[in-house]
Design a protein around this nucleic acid. Structure first.
Lengths: 150, 150
DNA sequence: CTAGTTGCAAATGCTTTGCACAGGA
DNA sequence: TCCTGTGCAAAGCATTTGCAACTAG
């Protein structure tokens, strides 16, 4: 899978660092590692999960505050997106090139991604009809996953 | 508009009261008024707004806690739905018979509703493909409304 | 009577902010 | 050196919970 390619990560990281520099911000290990964790994750992570991953997989402690600040920056730069999971903390994921939706199981909170270009097009059309400039879209289907259908 | 019809409201209220009775719960003025405010609102309301409406339009004070509890019940009974507005309190609205999405302006936080059956069908199809039983769907398009496009 | 309900105060949990100190550029 | 970043502690804010008094059925 694309996201798991280590070489691709270094390209992403290099671009990211350049981006930070261009904005007259400072590159730090904290930002790099937070990006790294999101990059190599195959699921949507909460702040707490990011903190744990950093500790367990990379043996580095980064404060919750710093993670929040980094995520806020990454989201503003359109590098990541946040997702509201019912009744719990936000989840974060690296932006892929294509818009996509999520199926969230309200029992086990598992998240499945889906893509559908016909919906994407419809949405653009709808935004147009209402003279809206679309910046972002969230499409979430709540229900019960196969395993939770007791 | 349908929702504004007073006579229809009394039918809705009667059904609601029956529903409450059937569940061995108690009917109270608080529940009735909260339903009433949601029924006659033409926009999505936050808890704070509901509280104010109750006070201003109906001259009744209902505690924030009670409103939260009533809303939780109404949502569980599938009478209302909540909507996450970016970085602020949840908004509540009476369920209409048809699923629909929202366009939210990230500048002025105004909300426009839209309906599109082709998207609804696609969503059912997607849920099916993933062996998911759909209970609810949220579709939100974020962007800038006509007025906020400076 | 007796369970559900109300509403205050306090707790909770996620997120943000203030601030002193550390450290990139 | 300067200004951003880090991270602790504290604040903020929407929402929930504990609990005693209340009330609908």
């Amino acid at each position: 899978m694309y996201k798991k390619e280590v070489n691709n990560f270094y390209i992403t990281l290099k671009n990211f660092k350049q981006h930070i520099t261009n904005l007259n911000l400072k590159n730090t290990i904290q930002k790099d590692y937070i990006l790294k964790v999101l990059y190599f994750s195959n699921k949507h992570l909460t702040v707490e999960e990011i903190e744990t991953e950093l500790l367990v997989k990379h043996n580095i402690h980064i404060s919750t505050t710093t993670i929040y600040k980094a995520l806020k920056l990454l989201e503003k730069l359109n590098i990541i997106s946040s997702l509201e999971v019912l009744e719990s903390a936000k989840c974060y994921e690296l932006n892929s090139n294509l818009p996509h939706g999520h199926l969230i199981c309200t029992s086990c909170h598992s998240i499945i991604e889906f893509k559908d270009t016909s919906i994407d097009n419809k949405q653009l059309e709808i935004a147009n009809t209402h003279n809206f400039t679309l910046t972002n879209q969230v499409m979430t289907i709540y229900g019960h996953c196969q395993r939770c259908q007791n």
